[in-house]
Design a protein around this nucleic acid. Sequence first.
DNA 1: GCTCTTCAGCTTGTAAACAACACTTACTGT
DNA 2: ACAGTAAGTGTTGTTTACAAGCTGAAGAGC
Lengths: 224, 224
Amino acid sequence: MAKSSAQLVYEQLKKKIIDFEIYPGTRITESEIAEDFQVSRTPVRAALQRLETEGQITIMPKQGCFVRSVDIESISQYYDVRITLEATAVELACDHMSDEDIDALQEEWNRENLENEIDMEEIKVREEAFHIAIAIGSGNNILANYLRDINNHIRILRRLGFPDRQAVIETCDEHSSICQLIREHNKTQARRAMTKHIRKSQELARSVTLSQLQQAIKRHQVVG
Amino acid sequence: MAKSSAQLVYEQLKKKIIDFEIYPGTRITESEIAEDFQVSRTPVRAALQRLETEGQITIMPKQGCFVRSVDIESISQYYDVRITLEATAVELACDHMSDEDIDALQEEWNRENLENEIDMEEIKVREEAFHIAIAIGSGNNILANYLRDINNHIRILRRLGFPDRQAVIETCDEHSSICQLIREHNKTQARRAMTKHIRKSQELARSVTLSQLQQAIKRHQVVG
DNA sequence: GCTCTTCAGCTTGTAAACAACACTTACTGT
DNA sequence: ACAGTAAGTGTTGTTTACAAGCTGAAGAGC
């Protein structure tokens, strides 16, 4: 099935926003985007409205659309919600996840298998996928969807984190431990490990100031 | 500021769906709604797209829109997420909620004050407001927003619950107790009480079968 | 020089016509 | 009688044109 123009505009625009190709706070107009994508304003409007309900942009009536800027405070709040949900998710996963799925996930985060990986972007994508995999493993699709939504909002900081080699190895070990605990159906410890694991990222997020963030965005734009 | 047609259509359409004036599963067309509201298809489309991203309806490309039918399984999952989030919310409220706000809330659910209330619809609205008030009291707006979204999806069952007088009194007492625990900053007990309180609703929800649900909807339509 | 008004321009909001596609139905060939 | 096909109908998807409203600058009045 061929995707509709509106769908295409939505996806590419969202990608641009997430990748900072469009700077947070920037004013964008329907005509401008329509020009870029070589379509009329209608599918653009549909895409923008969807992005607004998802919280990526703000539409000011008769004035224009603005890419929602990064709000440090709300990001920390997203992390609090995320911790709550993922702690529950990993508990449920202890009951519902099949052994094969756990083994596959654990193998993926075996330290040896990752030793050679050097692409940090790839690591970050897979890190997010790990958490979603557990959320799906919980058997609660609603929960998984909410976590996906949260990821859309905190991905900004997630991608701007500057992990060194040591941090990557730590992540591997923590992921592996969590898998092990799920396999042992050890709910209490699994919850504790997951909470601690995410709280580390939250601490990093808290330490990032707005000015640091803006510099990092610029760097990211140059690199990308 | 005068509301836009799209906004008006959105609000009224949403109300109709929630109130079962439009039966779940019904196929609706843009032209039909446009006719009803005496506007063109454009604002109707905007409203429908928004309702879709919010999960109230499903748009099948080139075929039509369908009011999302009630899925018992996913409602139970929504309840699981709700329990997790509200348990955290009430804990946070123990730290962040002002004494005045707690007192006001507790007074509102004083058993004596409600003894005379007989309008069940009113009770249900206030019941929902109680939980949102605590979510707001948590100081985490993101969390409150997610709970609002969850309420949009489980309100169907919430409104169909058939509380007798006894159930209303129980609810009063439970709400009052929860307020008391928040006031005492007793996080552990507050979490426990809230979890138990919501789980009762979930049990009710689980016991409702699809056929019961459909009958209840019909009854609701006749009454409304 | 200062303030208020007016107007031009850009923006989103809405309407109406047209295009593309899916489902249904009737027809045709075998 | 049946299968395949083609036309017809109804739906969403897209385009274009127009309406309504906000913003800022230029100009009139004091």
